[in-house]
């Protein structure tokens, strides 16, 4: 049995990340390390800065201060100081982003196969048969029947669209996946299926993931570690079950006690 080695370099090291909207704080002084194979959950209520933080990490927003150091193939690099081509390359190779709304992450006018194949073609795949085989394989892994490969996402249910978005993102074997409320807007039973799928993929591919959600049940099942945000700041972080079972900060205690027990 192979053991997950405890590596000396974090995959992502975030240092004092701050984003202001004028005089308002989007997120402030956020620092954390993410280690290979770890899933980090970020929770907090609407407006707590969790989505701003995710956007800053993923390069969709430019933070005002701080560093986001990613352990690239060529060693740790501050993503914020990369050139735009480098950052864009990163976002289609080592990184992936799963949007809450699949419409933001899919090309709705392109077939399922084309959606999955795009990242392959973006990194130079030029053999139609191979691209199609890999797309078929990935549709299978996200439980979409192979015969739907030539259908457009508009013909898919919400849950299928979200699974297609995941396949499209993971086909190039990224090392870090950002997810913004990946189970939001889905029926409870569909959510469960997606959670199971994500857990399996994270385990099999050794993925690291940062998941923003307001759903504590989702993070309990998916995240190894948890970060709680309030008013743009991290008020508490630690092992997921420790933060949920023995919250230390007044806000976390309130948050945890507000959840209906199922």
């Amino acid at each position: 049995m192979k053991m997950e080695p405890i590596t000396a370099t974090p995959l992502l090291r975030v240092d004092n990340l701050t984003k202001r909207y004028g005089s308002r704080i989007g997120c402030a002084d956020v620092s954390f390390d993410l280690w290979p194979g770890e899933v980090l959950g970020i929770v907090g209520e609407s407006g707590s800065g969790k989505s701003t933080l995710l956007s800053c990490l993923a390069g969709h927003l430019t933070p005002d201060e701080g560093q986001v150091i990613f352990d690239t193939a060529g060693g740790p690099r501050d993503v914020l100081r990369m050139t735009e081509p480098e950052r864009r390359r990163l976002s289609r190779t080592d990184w992936a982003f799963v949007h809450q709304n699949p419409r933001d992450g899919l090309r709705m006018g392109v077939t399922a196969g084309g959606n999955v194949g795009e990242r392959l073609m973006a990194v130079g795949a030029r053999h139609y048969g191979d691209i199609r085989d890999r797309a078929t394989d990935w549709l299978g892994r996200v439980e979409i029947a192979a015969e739907r490969i030539d259908d457009r996402p508009t013909a898919f249910s919400g849950g299928m669209q979200q699974r297609l978005q995941i396949a499209r993102n993971l086909v190039t074997g990224p090392r870090l996946v950002f997810m913004d409320e990946p189970t939001g807007g889905l029926d409870v039973s569909v959510q469960a299926r997606l959670l199971d799928l994500l857990r399996g993929l994270v385990r099999e591919m050794g993925l690291s993931a940062i998941i923003v959600t307001h759903d504590l049940a989702v993070v309990r099942l998916l995240a190894d570690r948890l970060m709680v945000m309030k008013s743009g700041r991290v008020v508490e972080q630690g092992l997921t079950d420790q933060v949920l079972d023995d919250p230390q900060h007044p806000y976390t205690q309130l948050l945890v006690s507000s959840v209906l027990q199922v």
Binding site: E4, I6, W35, E38, D224, R225, G238, L239, Q242
Partner: peptide, 10 residues
């Protein structure tokens, strides 16, 4: 946390 995660795994 990551040390505890590793501890719980193995």
């Amino acid at each position: 946390p990551r040390q505890i995660i590793a501890l719980r795994r193995a």
